[in-house]
């Protein structure tokens, strides 16, 4: 399981380079940006699901909190984009802290409670009564900070940091402890691992990553509505991409995003009905035959997957 920096870099660097150069040759920059965002979200979800086993269906809550953290900082504090990005991270972290007690729930209860929490945040932000603060359901416009090239670069930077974090989690002491917690929390405790603390750290890291993704999303598109930032598809996509590729690895979620989001953009946009069919069949097949994702095809044959 432990391996050198090289194997992770061999995956991450070409990916980052390709995404950095792609806008020069490919004009649909928003699509490229969405790829980056889903790559970040899938790795962020990986940090909590892959390393602790909690499946947060309300993951989009952190994304939305980040988007609005960014927007509120720009609108009310006149913050620079980078300061606003920090506010996005802080907003998501704060939500993560508030929701930490959810970690006491298990399985489906956690998933449902987390989903409900994300909905609650959405309801508050989109409430017309808060129009003066959040612009309520009417959405925000952040044209003063609009900077597509710069925000694209920052998104790439966040992706790089996220990939490094997951690589570190797989190698560090903490990563091994988190995996132990995921396998068996009782045994982990008897091995001396502080179970609650480990889960909390993974949870907050995961929240922070989604918050930064939300922040840079807000910055990049600069005009959005609460239902955009809290769109449940963000959760679903991040979960499906991660599961499809293989959680608890760095490569798995990357494969998941590239293949499935790629497929979505090839088929889904022109003939969405086929896409939903393919998607549905894929998920069923996956759960039945490949619960640990594509990466497990390799690990089962004795290959190591970074």
């Amino acid at each position: 399981m432990r391996r050198g920096v090289g194997e992770y870099a061999a995956v991450a660097l070409p990916l980052l380079a390709a995404l950095a150069l792609a806008p020069l040759v490919y004009s649909n920059e928003l699509l490229l940006f969405n790829f980056i965002m889903f790559l970040i979200l899938a790795q962020g979800l990986n940090a909590i699901y892959g390393f602790t086993g909690y499946l947060p269906f309300g993951y989009v809550g952190f994304f939305g909190a980040g988007a609005y953290g960014f927007a509120l900082a720009v609108m009310h504090l006149d913050a620079s984009p980078l300061l606003a990005m920090a506010c996005a991270g802080v907003a998501a972290l704060a939500l993560g802290v508030v929701l930490t007690p959810l970690l006491r729930l298990s399985g489906a209860y956690f998933a449902i409670a987390n989903l409900a929490a994300a909905q609650a945040v959405y309801q508050v932000i989109s409430n017309p009564a808060l129009q003066d603060i959040t612009k309520g359901p009417y959405g925000v416009t952040l044209s003063s900070v609009f900077a597509p090239a710069l925000s694209y670069g920052v998104a790439l930077g966040i992706l790089a940091a996220t990939l490094a974090l997951v690589a570190w989690l797989r190698n560090a002491r903490l990563g091994l402890a988190l995996q132990a917690i995921r396998e068996d929390p009782v045994s982990a405790a008897m091995a001396g691992v502080a179970v609650v603390r480990g889960r909390t750290i993974a949870w907050l890291l995961s929240a922070l990553i989604a918050g930064l993704a939300g922040g840079v999303f807000a910055w990049h598109i600069s005009v959005f509505y609460p239902e955009t930032a809290f769109d449940l598809s963000f959760s679903i996509f991040a979960i499906v991409f991660t599961l499809f590729g293989g959680a608890a690895t760095q490569l798995g979620p990357i494969l998941g995003v590239l293949l499935l989001y790629g497929l979505y953009n090839v088929i889904g946009i022109t003939v969405p009905q086929y896409f939903q069919l393919i998607y549905g069949v894929l998920i069923v097949l996956l759960v039945l035959f490949l619960p640990d994702g594509l990466a497990s095809l390799a690990t089962r044959r004795g290959f190591r997957v970074p």
Partner: peptide, 21 residues
């Protein structure tokens, strides 16, 4: 109750790292 998907060595390593008093 071993950590099933970890190796034997990793199982013991975790205890040696975290539980060593």
């Amino acid at each position: 109750r071993p950590f099933l998907s970890l190796t034997v060595r990793e199982n013991v390593e975790i205890a040696a790292t975290y539980g060593r008093a």
